[in-house]
Amino acid sequence: MRCSRIEGQHRRHGFTLIELLVVISIIGVLIALLLPAVQAAREAARGLQCKNNLKQIALAAHNYHDINNCFPAARASSSPQYGHMVTLMPFLEQGVLANAFNVSLSGGFADPGNQTVSTTKLSVLLCPSNPVQNTIRLRKSSSTGKSYGAYITDANGNFMMGWVCDYWVNHAISASTIALLSPGGTAPDPILKGTAPNMAMVTDGLSNTTLFLEHAGYDKHYVKGVGWPMPETDLTLDQPGAWGAWLGWCAFMVQGYSNSPPPTNASTPAGTACAINCNNSQGVFGFHPGGANVAMGDGSVRMLSTSMTVANLMAIVSRNGGEIISE
């Protein structure tokens, strides 16, 4: 009897296989429920940072206007080449960087003498939701497809590099898209058209006109959220060398797209079915699930929804179209 009691006291207890499987299943369900919430919280934080970036850039443009009685031109200088972000640096608390950029060098944004500035990463110009955050090799050509032009190198054959920018301005509005929406119509002007664009020219109202827009993903070509490397045979994306670097001409011609744009190796004609996050060739494009963020002419920031119509997009990116924008 004593031995029997001792054996009973040392009997081991544990999970059965079924109990273990049930526990694992419950943990799996909890993880499946928790991950989307965590991802949503992270994207919400990234979205807020993106909007804050745009707010800072818009305020810089307003401060520039206060001093110069105009906004910076979309293409600040064509000879040597450099873009509007160069002129905004002192107003983004980057005066030291602005002073380091030598505007007299013939190579402009891609000159070897400006590589220190060109390869400086500026978080305020990068959306944290963008998976493509890197430097790019620079080219001078602004042509598309096989006419990209050779990469720029220094005397030792080293590639000229530059950090990308996710927040652009529109220097033009697609006449092809306007013609599809209104046959015979002419494209209105974007907010920064001209050498000294000012607030008085925005007859549509500053709160109704975009100033800075997400145009992200360089130097990959993104169509409906899917990205490809950009081979020389890709005729669909303006090469990013002269346009994608923050020192360069970060300005694009806004257009609408069809719902089935070709991925690569084909042209991307204008369309009227898709307005936001369709194509980062000439489209308003961000990596937020609900749309893309923009800064308006009055300095406010908003998200343009993926459900926005092309007609409304064309209206909101123009300063003097006289359109009625239906929300």
Rank of each mutant, 00 (worst) to 15 (best):
F101C: 07
R139G: 07
C50W: 09
N293C: 14
G184M: 00
G157H: 01
A40Q: 08
G291K: 05
Y151S: 00
C278I: 02
N259D: 10
L105D: 08
A98F: 15
L17K: 06
L122Q: 10
L125F: 15
K193W: 11
S147M: 13
T135F: 03
A216L: 07
C3D: 01
G47N: 11
A172Q: 14
V117S: 05
S182H: 02
L48A: 10
A60V: 11
M296T: 14
G217A: 05
T209H: 06
L304E: 10
N320D: 14
M230Y: 02
E93F: 05
G149W: 03
L30Q: 05
M160C: 02
Y64R: 14
H65Q: 14
I276M: 10
N312L: 04
P289K: 12
S176K: 02
S176T: 03
M89A: 12
V294Q: 11
N99Y: 08
S123L: 06
N130H: 10
G185D: 01
V223R: 02
I178S: 06
A187Y: 06
R42P: 02
T306V: 12
A32R: 12
I26L: 10
A155S: 00
V117I: 08
N63Y: 15
K224F: 12
T177V: 03
A311T: 02
V169G: 13
N52G: 04
G47T: 07
C274A: 10
T153L: 02
D166M: 06
L247F: 10
A150T: 09
T87S: 15
N158V: 00
R137E: 04
E19R: 03
G14Y: 01
D204T: 03
N198F: 07
C70H: 15
G283T: 04
N130W: 09
L206S: 06
E214S: 12
E232H: 00
A60Q: 11
V301C: 12
L88T: 13
A270Q: 02
S143H: 12
K121P: 03
R12K: 03
N198S: 15
A98D: 14
A295H: 09
G322M: 01
M253S: 13
T119D: 07
E43Q: 14
T264N: 00
W228E: 01
N198M: 08
V23F: 09
S176M: 01
